[in-house]
């Protein structure tokens, strides 16, 4: 089947999509957007997190056909003409990126959190990231990165 959707603000379409295929497969294998990672395909790791009509979801659990006509934003949407977003810079600076496999999902989860709650409490940060696994960092640097990004955004940095 054919699937038409908006990806990062631009219309996109994929042909020959299998009906049982996931949005994750469409993004990576048909649209060539490899930022969204595929690890578990069962909703456990969060590395495939994208925003679907504004809400963070696991792209591996959305059937491609369910995304028809919807707006999808991937990690590729974060950096602008001016460079990395405040969240991305905070992750790099805080040492929150080691192998980097979990990073796109965590960036998307963090970005969604800070849009909703610019000054999140510690518990809100942990809650917002509870669906994202990292096998490298031990999470402390990730939490620091989120706090740093929140502080920068509060200053109106970018």
């Amino acid at each position: 089947m054919r699937v038409n959707l908006t990806v990062n603000g631009r219309p996109a379409h994929a042909e020959g999509v299998w009906e049982g295929e996931s949005l994750l497969y469409v993004l990576r294998e048909r649209l060539g957007l490899f930022g969204t990672k595929n690890a578990c395909e069962q909703g456990e790791c969060g590395s495939c997190t994208v925003r679907l009509d504004g809400e963070p979801v696991c792209a591996c659990l959305v059937a491609a056909g369910q995304a028809e006509g919807r707006e999808v934003e991937t990690v590729e949407s974060l950096a602008g003409a001016a460079g990395l977003s405040a969240v991305q810079e905070a992750f790099a600076e805080a040492g929150a990126v080691q192998c980097g496999f979990c990073t796109p999902g965590l960036l998307m989860a963090t970005d969604a959190l800070l849009r909703r709650e610019p000054r999140p409490a510690e518990a809100e940060i942990r809650e917002a990231l509870s669906g994202n696994l990292c096998r490298c960092t031990g999470y402390e640097q990730i939490l620091s990165a989120v706090r740093l990004a929140a502080a920068r955004r509060a200053e109106g940095a970018r």
């Binding site: 049982g20 996931s22 909703g43 059937a63 056909g65 369910q66």
Partner: peptide, 24 residues
Amino acid sequence: PIAGGTDLMVELNFGRRRPACLLD
């Protein structure tokens, strides 16, 4: 039927189920 897909897509992704038809 498929609603949120959080149960069903896992089964599809792992080939545990191959329904003839999905109803979104």
